[in-house]
Design a protein around this nucleic acid. Structure first.
Lengths: 209, 209
DNA sequence: ATCTGTGAAATGATTCACAGCC
DNA sequence: GGCTGTGAATCATTTCACAGAT
């Protein structure tokens, strides 16, 4: 079934489908066509059908997709049918905001530990977390079955923190630091960088003035 | 010179070059090859050269690129040689974190006004901002020459807020709300959505366990 | 009558490879 | 010898268009 490698762009779009389908379910809509879904997400019906076809045949000809069924299938494909545990590294302003952000929790991502390289921070309490030193990372990752690291340290320290996370068997990194992380191929990195987003936006705005 | 349309992927990468070049400049390195830059950013030298070639011929054969010169050129191309003013809509937890985030200011993006649809918030003070009602948006956008709107309201209200921003001549939207914004073609939207990032990451992590 | 799933075609992006220059 | 800039080639993604199912 997945003998053909799924393109990464397709994987990046699946969560959009999940979100739209959740929305539809909450509106008690139980069948949706690729046409309608495309309308919601501003994309072509053909792309949606093609994307889904990498994973199976979920639709009914002449009818469309059963919302609940497709949602469950996609959640399973993405691994969203379980809880994921993450640790946060860096408890400065940004790190604190991340801890307090309720969006992760709602989608079954749990931050279960917080670390900081600054010894002055270690031992302090943030929300319900005791801030731990980086030395404790190794044991905590194992004890708490952590598979994702969230990096919220200054740019200068980011690569080092990322290296430590990888040494400790973390396979996914959500990187808020403004650096291009160097990681082995088997590590999945996602960057969150609003400044980069703005800096590419202005290219288009500039022409308008 | 730009008679051939520049692909959007290229524009999205330019800020990465800007960042790397700034870094190099701060290290007093004044010449860099596409090879070296590729090493820093984890991309191929050919891609960098091709990207830059959409905008001009910035390098010297046998030598590479003058760091300071290329940096200035790219900043100008992206419109980063000036200050950009933005307003924030939504002063909940997320909005407050955005206001306090120093990264925008450092890169010449100024948040100069804050709005909230919730009348209970209006009139309160956050940092140096007086939270304004949405009714005041129209005048303030003009007075303060705001061209970018930062949306940090709950999903439900996001499309409405975005519509209001666009009605008031905002051309760029940095959207933190978890929705696929519907906007006319001439509006530039950038989405910041860490949950989507995690949800596509888990597809790859799932296979490892 | 409607909508999926999918090969084939079209379009878009990346990489190659080398002429030309320093 | 080293490096850019760039057409050409390759590779990837999107869109088309239609057979087949309900």
């Amino acid at each position: 079934m997945d003998s053909v490698e799924v393109p990464e762009v397709v994987v990046l779009r699946l969560p959009l489908y999940v979100r739209a389908l959740s929305q539809l379910m909450s509106e008690s809509i139980d069948v949706v066509s690729s046409q309608q879904l495309g309308g919601l997400l501003q994309m072509t019906p053909a792309q949606i059908r093609k994307d889904l076809s990498y994973f199976g045949r979920f639709g009914k000809q002449g009818r469309g997709y059963d919302v609940r069924f497709l949602l469950h299938e996609l959640q399973e494909i993405l691994g969203l049918d379980r809880e994921w545990r993450a640790c946060l590294v860096g408890v400065g302003r940004l790190g604190r905001a991340i801890i307090n952000y309720p969006g992760f929790y709602r989608e079954n991502f749990r931050i279960v530990a917080a670390f900081d390289g600054d010894r002055a921070q270690v031992g302090s309490t943030i929300g319900e977390f005791n801030v731990q030193s980086m030395d404790e990372l190794s044991d905590t990752v194992i004890d708490k079955k952590i598979s994702i690291g969230i990096v919220a340290v200054p740019a200068q320290q980011a690569q080092n923190v990322i290296d430590v996370l990888i040494e400790n068997n973390i396979k996914g990194i959500l990187n808020y630091a403004p650096v291009a992380a160097k990681v082995p191929m088997n590590i999945v990195v996602r960057n969150i960088d609003p400044v980069l987003s703005l800096q590419s936006m202005t290219f288009y705005l500039r022409e308008l003035e």
